[in-house]
């Protein structure tokens, strides 16, 4: 469904990605893990068209999309849940969801989708006329996901859904994401710092460090964690090994 080929991205003279390649099959949950500054967010921003690659391309449904504007890419069914959620705090919850449907013209269907999101996240339905800024962190993350769903994405990219949330809430977020894959056939590309959580949630794992892909593989094959650890940190786990990030 999505193929990233030899992606090079620079911020001015600072090189963020040097030749990153990976692909995602339809209906898959793919996680990109890696330490700070590895280029995880850069990868997502390039997929959604906010950043332009200096070399390489992003191919979605067989067509190159790396030259398109963010709005155009969103129109093709690739929606991003940005890092730090970026909900519209001054707008009401309902307005946040309406903005998510900014590209749609089918009013009745949009209405139905909104009701469906209120069913998935009852808390949003109960408080739909309140300012979104009044929601708790976990609720805001649910709203950000709900807003992304309003565009009826085929591929949803999520940047650090666990950022600043209590572990229990993070569990709930991943539960919701797994449910969404099952109920809507959604393909998910998730950026995550914790390789442990990524191994639990993902079908396929990609480890990124220093702008280069260190390791890609099926999560099931990487379960014991040693390879991931080496790819993540650049050295093998010499001590007992019960601690993993």
């Amino acid at each position: 469904m999505l193929e990233v080929r030899d992606l090079h991205v620079q911020y001015g003279r600072l090189v963020a990605l040097r030749g990153v390649s990976f692909s995602i099959a339809e209906g898959e949950i793919a996680c990109i893990v890696g330490p700070n500054g590895a280029g995880k967010s850069t990868t997502l921003l390039t997929v959604s068209g906010v950043l332009k690659p200096t070399r390489g391309e992003v191919i979605y449904d067989g067509k190159p999309i790396s030259g398109l504007s963010p709005e155009a890419i969103a129109g093709l069914g690739v929606t991003q849940v940005p890092e730090g959620r970026h909900i519209f705090t001054g707008l009401t919850i309902e307005e946040n969801l309406r903005v998510g449907a900014a590209l749609r013209r089918d009013r009745d269907e949009t209405r139905k989708d909104m009701e469906r999101i209120y069913e998935t996240f009852p808390i949003l339905g109960q408080r739909k006329t309140q300012a979104a800024g009044k929601l708790s962190g976990g609720e805001q993350q649910m709203l950000a996901i709900g807003r992304a769903l309003m565009s009826r994405p085929k591929l949803m990219t999520i940047d650090e859904p666990s950022l600043g949330l209590a572990p229990k809430i993070v569990d709930r977020v991943y539960e919701v994401l797994t449910e969404l894959r099952a109920s809507r056939g959604l393909t998910l590309l998730i950026v995550e710092q914790s390789s442990e959580r990524a191994l639990k949630a993902a079908d396929r794992l990609h480890v990124l460090r220093n702008g280069e892909m260190q390791l890609s593989g099926r999560a099931a094959d990487l379960k014991d964690g040693a390879e991931v650890h080496k790819a993540y940190f650049g050295f093998t786990k010499e001590h007992s090994g019960e601690v993993m990030i």
């Binding site: 906010v50 504007s69 929606t79 970026h86 519209f88 707008l91 307005e95 903005v99 900014a102 807003r147």
Partner: peptide, 23 residues
């Protein structure tokens, strides 16, 4: 209107509005 809403969204957070397909 959806125009006004889209513009207010960009006022709150331009990046997120763009990510939702707002020009």
């Amino acid at each position: 209107s959806r125009f006004g809403l889209a513009l207010r969204a960009s006022r709150e957070d331009a990046v997120a509005a763009q990510a939702s397909g707002v020009n």
